[in-house]
């Protein structure tokens, strides 16, 4: 299946350099030339959110029977305060990345785009960060955004 990855690499390179709808994806490529199963991506924070102005690093691990199985994706640890992201590990809760919802018609670009959309549209009903989810559920968006901005600008989360 690694021939699919090579094809995908070429396709993604072409799309990113030509299609302006993906301008928020600053990069998406294998981490090194030797290993096509480890990918890395940098996305910019969606506009009109507390994440705007910050860049976020995504780490991919592509399983050997990809695309039958979804890629394993996570944010860099201790970098992303978001109600569907586990801050300490960077783990992401997103249904299309689960075995039951994944389909092989999607590729890595779809995943990155979906995660970018998740940044702008937090889903408080399946939270990994309960504090942020509670603020969203209470519709206290200014508190939510302030808290996110506080963490993004180096604020301490205290001990867990």
């Amino acid at each position: 299946m690694s021939s699919r990855l090579v094809k995908e690499y070429k396709l993604i390179f072409k799309t990113l350099s030509q299609d302006p709808t993906y301008s928020h994806i600053l990069s998406l490529s294998p981490s090194s030339d030797e290993n096509l199963r480890q990918w890395e991506s940098v996305i910019s924070g969606p506009p009109e959110t507390a994440y705007y102005g910050h860049n976020f690093i995504l780490l991919f691990e592509v399983p050997s029977n990809y695309p039958l199985e979804p890629p394993k994706v996570q944010f860099q640890a201790n970098a992303v305060p978001h109600c569907n992201v586990d801050y300490d590990s960077g783990r992401i809760c997103l249904n299309i990345l689960e075995d039951a919802h994944w389909t092989p018609a999607w590729d890595l670009l779809h995943c990155v785009h979906a995660i970018w959309l998740l940044l702008a549209n937090p889903e408080p009903d399946s939270p990994l960060d309960v504090d942020l989810a509670c603020l969203i559920r209470a519709k206290d968006f200014s508190a939510h955004n302030t808290l996110v901005a506080y963490y993004l600008n180096g604020g301490s989360r205290g001990s867990k």
Binding site: M1, S3, R4, K7, E8, L11, P67, P104, A105
Partner: peptide
Amino acid sequence: SCGDCPICLE
């Protein structure tokens, strides 16, 4: 392109 298999991209 529409002529490719969405699974293996060939």
